[in-house]
Design a protein around this nucleic acid. Structure first.
Length: 469
RNA sequence: GGCCCCUUCGUCUAGCGGUCUAGGACGUCAGCCUCUCACGCUGAAAACACGGGUUCGAGUCCCGUAGGGGUCACCA
């Protein structure tokens, strides 16, 4: 039997980081087994679902390269089938109508809480004569869950987990308005879609018991469950929207590469020996659910950044140049014409090692596309005071001719000059750097000289000498 | 509160009874490289929550304790 997994987010907000990892694990598991990875939008609660959220989730997934195989299933469109299954259950005696009002249920919970009893529906309509039904109260449909014995889940991550059936109550399948609840739709859809492995967050472990009861009530085969531990925030608390959890779009906006995020997320709760940098091919080959840990992991931005820096350095210049150009577009004092972009691309080798995110990369690359007059950082301006102008003037004189201009030739010339003048290379290189880049930090100064070319380099140095005298 | 789950360096983790004086990575610190900043390289500090068992032998198995998390909706 071929493996079918699914990622089933509810469209009530962006695709958050925990959801992204759940999607990744489902994707990897399916790929590893040569199976299928499906996408299902859990939008049975129409009030809370928005089109924007659906779009945001698809965007996030596509950016991460974790779009589903085939068409996305929208759960609310299957309400008819869900109702049909509920009717079957009603007919077979596996479910019943309950006429409790929401107020009555709330009262039940309040009292249970006050008396320190478990908060469960007491099953008051379970065996009651339908003739007792009050007028004008639309009933919900509840599953007639077993009351004795226990329900056992053989979880791929958590192992054997069992709970006494008396701990579980008769949950609602169909609301009073006839629409299906999440608990019901999930089971029907997982069955109908042929899902063989349900991999999802640990917060669903408790639901698995109820869902297992429904599967059994319908005499359907249970899928294999795998409940992966949640991702916590840096403070150890649950990563929720109110607790600083960010959507994957936020990481994209920070300049994180999708492959870096994938690698990072993979290592959160899963390991393959001492391996840290793991390609998609290796991940697919190595991934298995029994290597998934059982304890929650904290999110660590520093490690993500480190990984991102690694993938940045591995990235091709073509791709990076266009990413940087897009990021720089519209900034003041920059021209992103062919020359500017060509310079950025040529400067990438030196730029890459100095950035952890695309944003940083763009910031560092901006000077290559800058127009005169350059803007200077405070430290750079300071470096240009004093005798900097005369030093730069002297450098201008020793710099090679246009035809001989290169990283090597400019380096040789400047070094020879420094030696002759009896000064350290740094006292020449730093003012030069300030003049050329407007900053005190940059890629190697001779690389900058070479990328900028003789005309632009001279113009930038001249601009400084002129203003300083 | 009931139920369920978890617990190795600050963080992510390796470890599947002896090879653990507990390994790797991020971060931190020191040094090297060096025109700046990075990258890279070298090194250092840093952990088996606690208490009982089982066993010739426990980070590894069992039971408690403590701490943390999850879940208890006509939300998903």
């Amino acid at each position: 039997m071929s493996v079918v997994t699914r990622f089933a987010p509810s469209p009530t907000g962006f695709l958050h980081i925990g959801g992204a990892r759940t999607a990744l694990f489902n994707w990897l598991f399916a790929r590893h087994h040569g199976g299928t990875y499906l996408l299902r939008v859990e939008d049975t609660d129409r009030k809370r679902s928005t089109d924007e959220a659906v779009q945001a989730i698809h965007d996030g997934l596509d950016w991460l390269g974790l779009g589903g195989d085939g068409q996305t299933v929208y759960q609310h469109q299957r309400a008819g089938r869900h109702a049909e299954v509920a009717r079957e259950l009603l007919a077979s005696g596996g479910a019943y109508h309950c006429y409790c009002t929401p107020e009555e249920l709330q009262e039940m919970r309040d009292r249970a809480k006050a008396e320190k009893r478990p908060l469960r529906y007491d099953g008051r309509w379970r065996d009651r004569d339908p003739a007792d039904a009050p007028d004008g109260v639309p009933p919900v449909v509840r599953l007639k869950a077993p009351r004795d014995g226990e329900t056992v889940i053989e979880d791929m991550v958590q192992g054997t987990v069992r709970v006494a059936n008396e701990e579980l109550d008769d949950f609602i399948l169909l609301r009073a308005d006839g629409t299906p609840t999440y608990m019901h739709s999930v089971v029907v859809d997982d069955h109908d879609m042929g899902v063989t492995h349900v991999i999802r967050g640990d917060d669903h472990l408790n639901n698995a018991f109820r869902q297992a009861q429904l599967f059994r009530a319908m005499s359907w085969d249970l899928p294999q469950f795998g409940h992966i531990p949640l991702i916590h925030g840096p403070d150890g608390a649950k990563m929720s929207k109110r607790h600083g959890a960010l959507g994957v779009d936020a990481y994209r906006d920070m300049g994180v590469l999708p492959e870096a995020l994938r690698n990072y997320l993979l290592r959160l709760g899963w390991a393959h020996g001492d391996d840290e940098i793991i390609s998609d091919e290796q991940a697919i080959e190595w991934f298995s659910m029994d290597a998934v840990g059982r304890s929650p992991a904290r999110f660590d931005m520093k490690k993500l950044e480190n990984l991102n820096g690694h993938y940045l350095r591995e990235s091709g210049d073509e791709r990076l140049a266009s990413e940087v150009a897009a990021l720089l577009k519209g900034r003041d004092g920059l021209v992103l014409d062919d020359i500017g972009i060509a310079r950025i691309k040529a400067g990438l080798p030196g730029l890459k090692a100095r950035a952890k995110t695309l944003l940083e990369l763009a910031d560092n690359a901006a000077f290559y596309a800058a127009t005169l007059p350059l803007s200077f950082t405070e430290k750079a301006s300071k470096l240009l005071e004093g005798d900097a102008a005369s030093i730069l003037q002297a450098v201008l004189d020793v710099l090679p001719d246009t035809e001989a201009w290169s990283e090597e030739s400019t380096e040789a010339a400047v070094k020879a000059y420094a030696e002759e003048a009896g000064v350290k290379l740094g006292s020449v290189a730093q003012p030069l750097r300030a003049a050329l880049t407007g900053s005190t930090t940059s890629p190697g100064i001779f690389e900058v000289l070479a990328v900028l070319g003789p005309a632009e380099s001279r113009a930038r140095i001249n601009a400084v000498c002129g203003s300083a005298t």
